[in-house]
């Protein structure tokens, strides 16, 4: 079993998983926050756009979204995210499109986690913010969102764990992350429980601390009322 670790770059594959996770998570947090703000905005058209995005993207399989990014946007529409003349352009394009797709998909879940957090903030907080003369944007930034983030840490942790495991879907558009390498090893060697075990363990090592961290954060940062 250990010879697999010598023959294949398992750590390198997990490093790719981590990179996909971190960049997609940042993207999902940014897009998701914007979507959540749209969904609580006083402007009806923004609310509808936000709801449309969430309902469309959340109900589309991730596989479809990533294949659309790769085949649809990259190969058919030729939307390059790197210099197409560079020797690693195919690999780099796939990685970047995978990050875009993962971020866009999980943004819908981040948005809903945040929106549930917004609902934990009592109406009186917004009224007090408005009554001292804060504008809508200032009340969101200074009063509502900081409390909403703290109220949605636990569900955001679940989204991050799901995102970590969902990076495995990126292997179908040719990103060399952990599950891609696992398939490669299984094809080259014989499928053994050892291979499954190594990769399962790898994901547990990545996700378990995230879960523990977010649970403790949600407890420590909870807004006391």
């Amino acid at each position: 079993m250990l010879d697999i670790l010598d023959k294949y770059d398992v750590l390198g594959a997990f490093w790719m998983t981590i990179k996909l996770t971190v960049f997609s998570a940042i993207g999902a947090l940014v897009i998701g926050t914007i979507l959540a703000v749209m969904r609580v905005a006083p402007v009806a058209i923004l609310r509808r756009l936000g709801a449309f995005y969430v309902n469309t993207v959340r109900n589309t399989p991730l596989t479809l979204i990533l294949v659309f990014c790769s085949l649809g946007l990259l190969y058919i529409l030729q939307v390059n995210l790197t210099d197409p003349k560079s020797p690693t352009s195919i690999v780099d394009n796939n990685i970047r499109w995978a990050i875009v797709g993962l971020a866009a998909y999980h943004a819908a879940f981040v948005c809903e986690a945040l929106r549930s957090g917004v609902n934990t903030v009592p109406l009186g907080q917004a009224e007090a913010a408005r009554s001292i003369g804060l504008t809508f944007t200032q009340s969101l930034r200074e009063v509502i969102l900081p409390q909403a983030f703290r109220g949605s840490i636990a569900p955001l942790g679940s989204v991050l764990i799901a995102l970590t495991k969902n990076t495995t879907v990126a292997s179908i558009i040719g990103v060399a992350e952990a599950s891609g390498l696992m398939k490669e090893i299984i094809e080259n060697e014989t499928a053994s429980f050892g291979v499954f075990f190594i990769f399962a363990l790898g994901f547990v090592i990545l996700t378990l601390p995230v879960g523990i961290l977010f649970t403790s954060l949600s407890r420590r940062l909870a807004v006391k009322r």
Binding site: Q125, E127, A128, R130, S131, G133, T135, E142, P146, V223
Partner: peptide, 20 residues
């Protein structure tokens, strides 16, 4: 409206201090 509200102090029944 925000500017005008800044000139009008409001004290609520349930205090509504910013909890965080």
């Amino acid at each position: 409206l925000a500017q005008l509200r800044a000139d009008v102090g409001m004290v609520f029944q349930s205090f509504n201090l910013f909890s965080h």
